[in-house]
Simulated scan of single mutants.
Amino acid sequence: MTDITTGATAAAPTTPTAVGAIPPHALRRVIETALEEDAPWGDVTSEAFVPADATATATLAAREPGVLSGGAVFAAVMAAVDPGIVVTLERADGATFAAGDTLAIVSGAARSVLRAERVALNLVQRMSGIATVTARYVAAVADTRARIVDTRKTTPGLRALERHAVRCGGGHNHRTSLSDAVLAKDNHLAVLAARGVPIEEAIRAARERLGHTVHLEVEVDRIDQIEPVVGAGVDTIMLDNFTPDMLRAGVALVGGRALVEASGGVTLESVATIAATGVDIVSVGALTHSARALDLGLDVVVEPDVATAPRDR
């Protein structure tokens, strides 16, 4: 398999391995589930039409420009179907490409390549679409201090792959799961309010229960909530659906006592204005929940058969 950081090429291994920070077990689970879904009893079309001894060479081709993510995932799918397939990646994850560029070359048993084709394409197209849109957001805030981060609004079962794709586009990851960090949002606070528990009291009690390594973040949707939250000792305060003027005021009120995250309704058209208010983080659910799969294709290379090619007469 290709090392996604160096672009070095080798034959794909027999089992998927870690791709960047994608946990091996997560990658293996995704691939196994997807292949079982796509060909539970084999590929009846290829088995009916394609000779068992046929081989094929194919290119992973870009139909439009973008940022690559999932090249080694693509190779791992091929390896899971047939360890004899060789995938040569022509671009590393995070690299930009133009329409018409060859991103990878695949060679091996034709039936195996055809069986792996759709699953491999689905994953690399999805991941590259996320990386491409992330890169656009990152470029839009390049002149500010703000980091672009993802959210938990990911495709169920694909979070590890989609978060890797965000990193390939130059973005950063928020908490991976509910188990990673404390993030008290509006519904958590609504439960507390219904019980008459002041927000600052709840924050201090949570801090007492948490280990010193656990990050504590609280979401607010009004200016008057900022001081009680920051004063209680949070690490990050999330300003949800604040206008740019409100964000600037909020940043001033926090005064460097916590990280400030802007969230809610962020678009490519609004992200630069939001970032310019001085916030540290801009979280964007659209990186994963609305990213369009990039148009990539796997094209089998057809070479004339010298035995059957027309002869000059």
Rank of each mutant, 00 (worst) to 15 (best):
M1A: 14
D3W: 07
T5P: 02
G7S: 11
P13C: 07
P13V: 11
P16Q: 02
I22F: 05
P23N: 01
P23Y: 10
H25M: 05
H25I: 03
A26C: 06
A26T: 07
I31V: 13
T33Q: 07
T33M: 03
E36W: 04
W41A: 12
D43C: 03
P51A: 12
A52R: 13
A52N: 01
T57R: 14
A58W: 14
L60K: 00
A62I: 08
E64K: 09
P65T: 11
G66N: 07
V67Y: 03
G70T: 11
G71W: 05
A72K: 13
A75N: 09
A75C: 10
A79R: 11
D82S: 13
G84Y: 02
I85T: 14
I85E: 03
T88P: 01
E90T: 15
A95N: 13
T96V: 12
F97L: 12
A99M: 03
G100P: 14
A104T: 02
A109W: 05
A110F: 08
R111F: 12
R111D: 05
R111T: 09
V113A: 01
R115V: 15
R115K: 14
G129I: 07
T132H: 00
T132V: 08
A140P: 07
A140F: 02
D143C: 09
I148W: 13
I148L: 07
V149W: 00
V149L: 08
D150L: 03
D150Q: 01
P156H: 01
P156E: 03
P156Y: 01
G157M: 09
L158A: 02
L158G: 06
L158C: 02
R167K: 13
R167T: 15
G169V: 09
G169L: 04
G170E: 03
G171L: 10
N173S: 13
N173K: 08
R175V: 07
T176D: 10
S177R: 15
D180G: 14
K185Y: 05
D186I: 00
N187Q: 12
E200F: 00
A202K: 13
A205T: 15
L210I: 10
H212T: 11
V214W: 01
L216C: 08
D221L: 04
I223R: 11
V230G: 14
G231C: 08
G233I: 04
V234N: 13
V234F: 14
D235R: 08
I237P: 06
F242R: 09
D245T: 14
G250T: 00
V254A: 02
R257P: 10
A258Y: 04
A262W: 05
A262E: 06
G265V: 01
G265I: 07
A272H: 15
T273V: 05
I274R: 10
T277Q: 13
V282T: 06
V284H: 14
V284E: 08
G285H: 10
A286D: 10
H289Y: 04
S290N: 12
R292T: 15
D295E: 02
G297E: 12
G297A: 15
L298C: 02
L298M: 15
P304F: 10
A307G: 15
A307Q: 13
T308V: 13
T308F: 11
P310C: 03
R313Q: 09
